[in-house]
Simulated scan of single mutants.
Amino acid sequence: MTSTTAGQLGGASKGKGSSVLLKLGYALLYIVLIVVAALQLFPLVWLLFFSLKSNQEVFNLPPLSLPTNPRWENYSKVWSAGNIDTYFLNSVWITVVATALTVVLGSLVTYAITRMKWKGSSLVLGLFMVAMMIPVHSTLIPLFSMFNKAGLIDHPLSLILTYVAFNMPITIMILLGFYYALPREVEEAAIIDGCSVNRMFFQIVLPMTGSVIATTLIINMIYNWNEFIFVNTFISSDSFKTLTVGVQNFIGQYTTDWGAIGATLMISILPILIAFLFLSDRIVEGMAAGSVKG
């Protein structure tokens, strides 16, 4: 056997060894990912089983045990008798309005700060970033006093204004990196063609930021949908309450309907899960694009 042949055999054996190690590495990676995914799905499975049980089954059966007689009527009960249909619709339209306003206003502010030259732009950006450090709880009394004087207590507008104000800083921070990376040549060509600033933003710049807007949309949706403190403080009428506060309807002084609470929580989780599934690819793309400044 010549030295060349021996070298070829040795290279082949090394190649086979590295290929085996690579396959083992991928197998180990998939096992870890499956375990992590199972841990992530565990609360959802538990909540589903929980929502189909009676109070006796909740306390007497193991957490992951199947309900003896699935109580699907828990869902119909909370939807009709529990007034959850009204709370659900309130959560939907308040979340949609507040999220849309936040994303549009945040995009306008970010465009003005990053793409226009004017005095005070750095100061304005600094004020928005400082606003991120303000604790939510410290604003409850001032906001309640302000909304009370304005006649907005027990009015959905108080929630929308609050959500927009508190979500603007994080929205702007996410958009900043992406806007800095946008090529200026596109805007310069549009200006040469006689494009106005408003038309340039809405027809050229805004469509280019679709991926990062998807990221800000889902973040704002999650915050607005799950928010509890402001709803519980500013809203007292059942006609304006949202799902997060509506769960309290099934907690009584002497008895608590745990199955109905589980059904309400399951209903409240589904819209966010569906939105995340549809926007997940755009979210990852937007986070990756927004992390690069150039």
Rank of each mutant, 00 (worst) to 15 (best):
M1I: 09
M1F: 05
T2E: 14
T2D: 14
T5F: 13
A6C: 00
S13Q: 09
G15I: 04
S19Q: 14
L22F: 07
K23F: 09
L24H: 01
G25R: 06
Y30F: 12
L33N: 08
L41P: 06
L47T: 03
F50A: 11
N55Q: 10
Q56R: 15
E57Y: 10
L61N: 03
S65F: 05
W72E: 11
N74C: 08
K77Y: 14
V78E: 05
A81W: 07
D85Y: 11
T86W: 02
T86A: 08
Y87T: 06
F88L: 06
T95S: 13
L101T: 05
V103M: 14
V109S: 08
I113N: 05
M116A: 12
M116N: 15
K117R: 14
G120M: 08
S121Q: 14
S122W: 05
S122M: 10
V124T: 05
L125D: 14
M132S: 05
S138R: 04
T139L: 06
T139V: 02
F147V: 09
K149F: 03
I153M: 02
I160T: 00
F166M: 12
P169A: 09
M173N: 15
I174C: 06
G177N: 03
F178R: 14
P183K: 14
P183W: 15
A190E: 06
D193A: 01
D193W: 00
D193P: 01
D193Y: 02
G194S: 06
I204D: 10
P207K: 02
M208F: 12
T209E: 03
S211I: 02
T216H: 09
I218W: 04
I219R: 07
N220E: 06
N220F: 07
N224C: 12
W225Y: 02
N226S: 11
N226Q: 10
I229Q: 10
I235W: 04
S237W: 03
G246D: 05
V247R: 06
V247S: 08
N249G: 12
T255F: 02
D281F: 11
E285C: 12
A289V: 08
A289Y: 09
S291V: 07
